[in-house]
Design a protein around this nucleic acid. Sequence first.
DNA 1: ACATAATATGATAATAAGTTATGAAAATAG
DNA 2: CTATTTTCATAACTTATTATCATATTATGT
Lengths: 316, 316
Amino acid sequence: MKIDSEHLEILAVIVEKGGLTEGAEALGKSQPSVSRSMALLEKRIGMPLFQPGRRPLRPTELGLSLARFGARIRAANQEASLLVQRFRKGHAGRLRVGGSPIFMDGVVSTMIADFQMRHPEVQIDQSYGYVDTLEASLRNGTLDMAILPLHPSQVPPGLSFTPVLPSRNVVAARAGHPLIRRKAITQADLAPYTWIAPPANSPLYRDLERALKSIGQEDFNVSFSGGTLASIQSVMAGSDALTVLPYSVVFLSRRSVPMEALPLRIDHPERQLGLLMPEDRPGPPAMRQLIVFLTEEFARLTARMEHDQQVTRRRG
Amino acid sequence: MKIDSEHLEILAVIVEKGGLTEGAEALGKSQPSVSRSMALLEKRIGMPLFQPGRRPLRPTELGLSLARFGARIRAANQEASLLVQRFRKGHAGRLRVGGSPIFMDGVVSTMIADFQMRHPEVQIDQSYGYVDTLEASLRNGTLDMAILPLHPSQVPPGLSFTPVLPSRNVVAARAGHPLIRRKAITQADLAPYTWIAPPANSPLYRDLERALKSIGQEDFNVSFSGGTLASIQSVMAGSDALTVLPYSVVFLSRRSVPMEALPLRIDHPERQLGLLMPEDRPGPPAMRQLIVFLTEEFARLTARMEHDQQVTRRRG
DNA sequence: ACATAATATGATAATAAGTTATGAAAATAG
DNA sequence: CTATTTTCATAACTTATTATCATATTATGT
C-alpha cells in the first residue's frame, strides 16, 4: 500500500494552516480539489485523518503524525526545487575542466579560484592532458571544457574553439639572472646555461626544441626535466637554468616566484590559448557562467600584459 | 515551479538500481511508464537528468542531486506507510482513558502498565472523573473509553457498556488490625474506630454511607477524607482507621500495602465495573487491542479473586 | 433559529499514469 | 564487423486522478 506523497504534502499544509480552505489557498488549489484529495487518502489508508463533525477541520492523531511526514517531504521537495533553480542559472553544478598542465597551473587555476569565490556551489574538477586525450574526453562526455593552446587548423571537427589569449613563448630565467639586463642576447650568451625541460612528450618540449633551433642552438644541456610548473619554478628560482614558458605564465608568476622573460625573440608556433568544447552539446548551465568569466578574465589579462610590455619597452 | 515528489522518488529508484528497466521493476511499474515519467520531469525542469546516449541510463550531475532528495522523500513516505500499518493494527496511536479515581489507581493503572509493555507505541492519556463528566467527554470525543462501576440501568443511551468485574465493596483495615481475626463483627465492634472517607462528592462516599447504614451505624467519625488511593492507603497503614473500598482494590493492594477486608457483609449497590464507550464510533484501532487486553486481565483477576475467597473460606 | 463560514459533492473537462505493442539505439558477443 | 541482446523511447489507447465551477450540506456563533 503505497501512499501518494502529494497527499501527505497536502495534509501537512492543511494541518499547518489549520483548515482545509486555508490550506487549499496556501497550496494554490481549489477547495474542492484538496477536499477530494484528502477523501481519497482517507479511503486508501482506511482510517480517518480528521475528526468527524469538526468544522475548522482538526486532524486525528494519525492525521497529525502523517502530517509530520508530509512536512518532511515538502521540505525535501522545496530544496530540490531550489537546487533546480540554482542549477538552471548556472549557480550550482559540477564542471569538469581539463587543459595543458603549464597553462592550467600557471594561468587558469588562479582564475578558477576567483570563479569559485563568486560561485561556491559550482564544483570544478580539474584534470590535465594534451590535445588528443582532451579531445577524446570531450567527445565521450567525461570532460565539459578543455583549455589549451591550439592552431586554428588543428581544431578537431565537431568541437568549437574560442581563442582567449595569444600564446607567445619566451625564454625565462630567475629574477636577477645575469642575462636579464642585457640589451640583446645571442646564441653564444645562452650557451653556458643549462635548461629546464618540460616533460618530453609535451608540446612545450617541442616548443623548446624549436625555439632553440630558431636561434641557432641545435643542442642543449638539460639539467632538469619532467616536472610540473611548481617544480620548474622552484628549480628556476634556485639556479641559473633557463626554460621556455608561455609569456602569460611568466607574467602571472612574477609576483610569487621572481622570474623574468629574457629580451630575446624566439620562434614559436602560431597558437592561441583557447576554450575547446563540444559544438553541439551546450554543457551544464554553469558552463555559460564559466565561459563568460574566463573570457573576461583573459581579456583583462591580455590588456595588462600589453600595458606592461609598453611600459617595459619604453623603459628598456 | 513545483516538482512532483513522485517523480523524484522514481528518479531515486532508477539511480539506485542503475537503470530505468530495473528501476521500473523495483517500483512495480512498467518500463514505458517510468520512462515517460522521467521524460515529463525533464521537460518540467527543462534540464536533462540523464546523460544522453548512454544505455544503462546514467544520471547527470543534476539528476544525481535530485535523486538524493527523491531518496529522502521515499524514506519519509515509507515511514508514513509503516505508521499507517501499525496504526491500523492498533500497535500505535493514542488512547484517552478515563475512570473513577480509586479503580484507575488501584486496578486499571497496573493493567495499563502491562499493556504498555506489549504496545510501547500506544500512548495512553489517563484522566479521572465520575459518570457525568466521563459521559460528556465520551460524547464530545475528548475521551475514547471510560472505566467505571455502573448499574445496568444507569448506562447512558448511545453508549455501550461492557461489564468486566463485579464491584463488591468491603470494609478494609490495615493488616494486623484488631478486628481482622474476629469470626463475626457487629456494629458495636466498629464503633470505636474512625473512618477514612473518599471525597464527599464521589460515589464511593455514598457507598460508605450506605454500607454503614446497612449495618445499623447511622453516624460515623471521619478522621481523614478527600485523598486519592495513595493517601488512603498511607493513612490506613499507619492507623487503625477503617474505610470502604472495592474488594478488587483491596485484593490487588495487599502485597504492597498490607491490608485486609473485614469479615463483614455490607450492603453495596448492584454495580459492575465495566468499559463505557461510544456505541457508534469504533474509536482508534488501538482501542480494540486495549479492550481485549483489559477483558482478559479482568477475567484473570476475577478468577484469582474467586480462588482466593474459596481458600480463605476453607481456612476460616 | 438564523446567518455565516467551512466542507462535501455532482458534473465534467483536462492531465497524467497506466497498459501493450513496437521501434530505435547502444552494448555485447561471435 | 556484423549479429544479437539489452535497454530505452514512442505510439495508441484506457483508466485514474486532479482540476474546475456550481451547489448542497454541515458546524459555529450570535
